[in-house]
Design a protein around this nucleic acid. Structure first.
Length: 800
RNA sequence: GCCGCUGUGGCGAAAUCGGUAGACGCAAGGGACUUAAAAUCCCUCGAUAGCAAUAUCGUGCCGGUUCGAGUCCGGCCAGCGGCACCA
């Protein structure tokens, strides 16, 4: 019989759908397993071969866990708000709702053609008012707790999207989405206080099983540093507080620097003889985009404040104060003490402005470069700190500052609050009304969802305001508190909003009274295994951990962390090893692969391509090996003999394979799991195969290649679907061979291979090894010094 | 500059605890079947020398630890990813 993969795959996909074969049960007494992949943005381009790498991997896990008796939740949905849809809608004059519908339909049929075992009854869509009602509800809770606030501040402004971007969305000084220049612009924006959770977002990484690189990247992004705040007096009498991580070098401070935006520039206006020059510098700095600022990295610029000086609290020295854009208003206090001898940036600035450099830590050569080593240096020129190590000095100076009342230890984070508003149409409306009397107030929860008005045009206006701002029926409303005429907030939420809690909705997706019921959350959370792209580590993954912690704090979810385990797959590259992209013309379309080879082959190849965590180039020739595997598996139908017991020849290989495949799946080694299945198949071609053996093989291969295995199982008379069958269990005693080949080394070089019984005794092993003719040849004329025997592995004879 | 990761055949890669380097697959070469091609099946396949048995070399480079190193340690080099004036 021919292996007609197209017919077989259609048949089983329909069967699974009709029978709801993968619906998670609402029986909360069963052992549960929640496998999750990042839900896609349904773009117009359709599915990319990168998507199925993640989806297939966790599909394998979900299918394995189901066969092992778990009540498995493996859901899918659509993260469908976002700019590309909106832009497409504008360009083609189709409503975004319609565009989204089309894209979702396409994505869904593509996913279904891969035989992924999603529970489609729980499908969600972030643009569905029934869904975003709860996104808005969470925003209101954040607002109530003071974690959502509006603030005028310099923000990242994409010149092409005419939209504010979060720090996380600016990559290399350009817009992550469209690649256009990003400039800084003063705007009133909604912000979320993620910084309030900075420490917990670091600490609780200890409690979760994330791959190490994800943890490291999140920690670096949050950027905790410990130091001290120190108050410098000034000749104006105003206290100037600075932040430093090196309070030990306080005696070496020879000048101070404040950010151009520092409020003291205005405060000291009358005392500053060169005020105009300073303002000109400030304005020039403000015009620079982040990208330009970074470009100027090497050349330090700045202006000295003429008329005001700082006073070093440890020695009373008067030192000059500068403004310079290398000091950021958004970090620490916006002011620093500069210690050119022990900081590279201060050193460069001091050289440029010919300022004194005083060495306070011995160990380097400060006439050549800054000495920044904290490990080896010894304090000098530092009064009561002289002779101490850097660590000791840090402790002592902080003590001193506290006693004098001029400083205290301080922890700072690089993490900034999350800019949460976007001036676009296709997002969740922020459920806030601005009242002239009451200020910003949230709309009553029973009025949620606040839906988007149906309008013909979605283009942002010339001021960069949201399209919603031009719709009077939407804007004009009454204050929910006092009833006075008021105006609605017109900004919408960023795309990251809907994805910050979506995994909770899957637990109970149709609930109208809560984002999910307590019982469902109690049962299903946390997610047992979450796989997704590295690119979301400091965006979605961090945001959703923040929201989850907030929901935990207000008693909505039962766990501190949303995901018990997080892994990350590597990208699939084009054939040449470059990133797949339309412009390079190296894009592989999953539909073509499914048509040419079938979904089972496609799934196998995506998993076999290489180390799951690493990037791997697509190869249109290598995939043939996986097709051959399917063909050869199919051909077993013609080879199979009757028999309900494993044959002696195959038994041990089968038990080894059960152990290895199961183990590999749970340890991200899908490639070697498939290699093991291929090896087992080769064994069957050598030894023959009987019915019991083939049934076991089909069960093992089912999570990887579900269609062909189900079909073969049925053709062999199987009445139960493999997807619901019991997964084979190995017998440990049968995972080893009765005899093993052991290498015999002479002085560390393999000279012969001998066959020994498994777990052969040491003396016996030595005896056989020494008796070997080849070994004898190499021992001739030498004295045996000692012999090392490692059971079942090696015998090494050391001879001189 | 800082942080992280990776360097193994012609190619994708294995080697899970320091114990036979190259499993599995692709490509390539040879053979069988075929009128022929495709498909399939069998054999070979790290380099060098040799008819062969076999020997020597071989996991980016230099050194070290060890009976034994792809694996551990120290120092380099190259590539990839992230961050980037965060005091």
């Amino acid at each position: 019989m021919k292996y007609d993969y197209t017919a077989i795959e259609k048949k089983w996909q329909k069967n699974w759908e009709d029978n709801k074969a993968f619906a998670a049960k609402n029986d909360f007494t069963l052992p549960k397993y929640y496998a999750l992949v990042e839900f896609p943005y349904p773009s117009g381009a359709g599915l990319h071969v990168g998507h199925p790498r993640s989806y297939t991997a966790l599909d394998i896990v979900a299918r394995l866990k189901r066969m092992q008796g778990f009540n498995v939740l493996y859901p899918m949905g659509w993260d469908a708000f976002g700019l590309p849809t909106e832009n497409f809608a504008i360009k083609n004059k189709i409503h975004p709702v319609e565009v989204t519908k089309q894209n979702v339909a396409r994505f869904k049929s593509q996913l279904q053609s891969l035989g992924l075992s999603f529970d489609w009854d729980r499908e969600i869509n972030t643009t569905d008012p029934k869904y975003f009602k709860w996104t808005q509800w969470i925003f209101i809770q954040l607002f109530k707790k003071g974690l959502a606030y509006k603030s005028t501040m310099p923000v990242n402004w994409c010149t092409s999207c005419k939209c504010v971007l979060a720090n996380e969305e600016v990559v290399g000084g350009v817009c992550e989405r469209c690649g256009s220049e990003v400039v800084r612009k003063e705007k009133s924006q909604w912000m979320l206080k993620i910084t309030e959770y900075a420490q917990r977002l670091i600490d609780d990484l200890e409690e979760v099983n994330y791959v190490e690189r994800v943890k490291t990247q999140q920690k670096n992004w949050i950027g905790r540093s410990t130091g001290a705040e120190v108050d410098f007096n000034t000749t104006e009498g105003d206290k100037m507080t600075i932040y430093t991580t090196r309070p030990d070098t306080l005696f070496g401070a020879t000048y101070m620097v404040i950010a151009p935006e520092h409020p003291y520039v205005e405060k000291w206006k009358d005392s500053l003889k060169n005020y105009d020059e300073i303002v000109a510098y400030k304005e020039a700095a403000a015009r620079k985009s982040d990208f330009e600022r970074a470009e100027m990295n090497k050349e330090k610029t700045g202006v000295r404040l003429d008329g005001v000086r700082g006073i070093n609290p440890v020695n009373g020295n008067e030192i000059p104060i500068f403004v310079s854009d290398y000091v950021l208003m958004t970090y620490g206090t916006g002011a620093i003490m500069a210690v050119p001898a022990h900081d590279d940036r201060d050193y460069a600035f001091a050289k440029a402005f010919d300022l004194p450099i005083i060495e306070v830590v011995k160990g380097g050569d400060v006439t050549k470069e800054a000495f920044t080593d904290c490990e080896t240096g010894v304090m000098t020129n530092s009064g009561f700190l002289d002779g101490l190590t850097v660590e000791e000095a840090k402790e002592k100076i902080v003590e001193f500052l506290a006693k004098e009342g001029v400083g205290h230890p301080k922890v700072n984070y690089k993490l900034r609050d999350w800019v949460f508003s976007r001036q676009r149409y296709w997002g969740e409306p922020i459920p806030v009304v601005h009242c002239p009397h009451c200020g910003p107030v949230t709309i009553p929860e029973d009025q949620l969802p606040l839906t988007l008005p149906d309008v013909p045009s979605y283009e942002p206006n010339e001021n960069g305001d949201s399209p919603l701002a031009d719709i009077e029926e939407f804007v004009n409303t009454t204050c929910p508190v006092c009833g006075a005429p008021a105006k609605r907030e017109t900004d919408t939420m960023p795309q990251w909003a809907g994805s910050s809690w979506y995994f909770l909705r899957y637990a109970d997706p149709h609930n109208e009274d809560a984002l999910a019921s307590k019982e469902a959350l109690e049962y299903w959370t946390p997610v047992d295994w979450y796989n997704g792209g590295m690119e979301h580590t400091t965006l979605h993954l961090l945001y959703s951990r923040f929201w989850h912690k907030f929901l935990y704090d207000i008693g909505v979810v039962p766990t501190k962390e949303p995901y018990a385990m997080r892994t990350s797959h590597g990208m699939i590259l084009g054939e040449g090893g470059e990133k797949m992209s339309k412009s390079r013309g190296n894009v592989i379309n999953p539909d073509d692969i499914v048509a040419e080879y079938g979904a089972d082959t496609f799934r196998l190849y995506e998993m076999f391509i290489g180390d799951f965590e690493k990037a791997a180039p697509w190869s249109s020739t290598s995939i043939k090996g996986c097709k051959r595997f399917c063909d050869r598996t199919w051909a077993l139908l013609d080879m199979v003999q009757e028999g309900t017991e494993f044959s002696e020849k195959n038994k041990r290989e089968i038990h080894k394979a059960i152990k290895k495949v199961t183990d590999d799946i749970l340890n991200l080694r899908f490639n070697t799991a498939i290699a093991t299945l291929m090896g087992l198949l080769n064994t069957f071609y050598e030894n023959g195969i009987n019915k019991a053996e083939l049934e076991t093989f089909l069960k093992l291969a089912n999570p990887f290649a579900p269609h062909i295995t189900e079909e073969m199982n049925e053709l062999m008379g199987g009445t139960e679907m493999l997807a619901h069958a019991k997964y084979p269990v190995h017998d440990e005693a049968l995972t080893v061979d009765e005899s093993v080949k052991v290498a015999v080394q002479v002085n560390g070089k393999v000279r012969s291979v001998i066959e020994l019984p498994f777990d052969c005794e040491e003396e016996k092993a030595k005896e056989i090894a020494f008796a070997d003719q080849k070994v004898q040849n190499f021992l001739e004329g030498k004295n045996v010094v000692k012999t090392i025997v490692v059971k079942n592995k090696i015998v090494n004879i050391v001879a001189k």
